[in-house]
Amino acid sequence: MARVTMTVNGKAVAGEVEGRTLLVQFLREGLGLTGTHVGCDTSQCGACVVHMDGAPVKACAVLALDADGAEVRTIEGMASADGTLSPLQQAFQDHHALQCGFCTPGMVMSAAALLAGNPRPSEHEVREYLEGNLCRCTGYHNIVKAIMAASGQGAAIAAE
């Protein structure tokens, strides 16, 4: 076992982990942050996407010890302390961008990473950016709508 320390959603955390402990296991089992989901377990589906030092990563394909000292943000860190949803999360709700909700944490974290670097993406850019996030319910269209709305471009695909 080895000691790992990192900042998760603004809070300094530490724990004892094995070399083989994945970041997603540390978040879910070590810290109880079960909002980050494990979908495919083969780093294809994107349900486990979190931000590590500002960049989106698949938490099932990063070792916890490789995140030592990193700044990590998970879906639990998206809403305000009083529970008010972030504009992006609110847009997901308003546009019915989820059905079963399993992929949603990863979708929101990927979308947040996109908007952080590209605040007004085109619809094509949104769809391309989500290529590592799989959703088996929605057909993606409402997810794209929600992200466009969150970027202040609600009307851009309203006609479709």
């Binding site: 994107g46 989106p56 990927s110 950016y129 590592g132």
Partner: peptide, 9 residues
């Protein structure tokens, strides 16, 4: 290559 999360790592 891959997708944005893969390209981060």
């Amino acid at each position: 290559i891959g997708d944005p999360a893969v390209r981060s790592r």
